[in-house]
């Protein structure tokens, strides 16, 4: 038998093995270890919660619709909910690193760790907590999602056509009865290459494509849907804040995918009516004017 054929090595067993033969939870979690870990955990949890609450709105753009704000809220809530669990994992890892019994990096540790092969209480509570978290996340997600499925009886129809590599919009002739009883009339169909939406008017986008799949993503409306050739994809929202943003293509669509964007704006409904009344001649683009553009 060759000398480096060293199967059957006996490593030193854990020093206080007799205490650990039938370990209860309180013995596995030695008090000083628990305290150290708890400090790290608390610190990280607070950090995570604060980041979730205060960083998210800074990181994400201002949203022009309830759907958009729901996205921000979701990130906020999920970060806060996940923070304690993520912090616990980090805390144990960091504590294990700091409190490593073995300082020499060159040789194998002289003493093995305690042979903890699992603990029903720890595993069980981990399972219960993570299941409860998932149930909460699911409940939150489904509630938010369901609240976005409200179909307004009357909505401004906007036909969105994606093609390589431009979005075009057409407003068919229609009369929309607004929630307050007022009406909004598009007397004659209007084609446009920018997207202009009246504020507080429910909008229904009918999204389709002439060629390949595009991703219709009016960024700050918090909705998104693919433009599939031969299919009509319906998206609904009600923009409730004035402002400008971009419609970007979110699905790679070939050569000029990067340039497939549209300037879009939410404008007062009087401005919208005035613009639409010019009919097709009103292709003079509102958004371009708002931005002090080139025309």
């Amino acid at each position: 038998m060759s000398s480096n054929h060293n199967h059957g090595i006996h490593h030193a067993t854990y020093q206080s093995i007799d205490e650990e033969v039938a370990p209860g939870l309180h013995k596995q979690l030695h008090r000083q270890h628990v305290r150290g870990t708890l400090y790290v955990w608390a610190l990280l949890t607070v950090g995570g919660i604060l980041a979730g609450l205060y960083l998210t709105p800074i990181l994400m753009p201002h949203m022009n619709s309830p759907e958009g704000r729901a996205a921000i809220e979701t990130v906020k809530v999920f970060t806060v909910a996940a923070a304690p669990v993520a912090a616990l994992v980090c805390a144990v890892a960091i504590y294990s690193l700091i409190n490593s019994r073995h300082r020499s990096h060159l040789d194998s540790p002289p003493v093995d760790g305690p042979p903890l092969r699992g603990n029903a209480l720890a595993s069980g509570s981990w399972l219960v907590v993570s299941t409860l978290l998932v149930v909460f996340l699911l409940f939150w997600g489904l509630t938010e999602w369901a609240s976005q499925q409200v179909v307004h009886a009357d909505a401004l129809q906007v036909n969105v056509t994606g093609q390589q590599w431009l979005w075009t919009y057409s407003y068919p002739a229609q009369t929309v009865i607004l929630p307050g009883g007022k009406t909004l009339t598009v007397p004659k169909a209007v084609d446009a290459t920018t997207l202009d939406l009246p504020i507080n008017v429910p909008v229904q986008f009918n999204v389709t494509s002439k060629d390949v799949t595009h991703g219709f993503w009016p960024t700050q409306l918090g909705i998104q849907g693919d433009a599939n050739p031969g299919v009509n994809d319906v998206l609904r929202t009600t923009p409730d804040h004035l402002g400008k943003f971009q419609v970007r293509c979110s699905q790679i669509c070939g050569l000029y995918h990067a340039y497939m964007y549209t300037q879009a704006s939410v404008i007062p409904d009087s401005a919208f009516t005035a613009w639409i009344a010019q009919g097709d001649a009103g292709r003079v683009l509102t958004s371009a004017k708002i931005t002090g553009g080139v025309r």
Binding site: Q28, H30, H33, L88, V89, V92, A93, S96, L97, N99, S100, R101, H102, H105, S108, P109, V111, D112, G113, P114, L116, G118, N119, A122, S123, W126
Partner: peptide
């Protein structure tokens, strides 16, 4: 994650 941190917990961590 539980198994990873459970395995590390109070181990003689040999940080190679």
């Amino acid at each position: 994650f539980l198994c990873a941190i459970g395995t590390m917990w109070r181990g003689s961590n040999w940080v190679r």
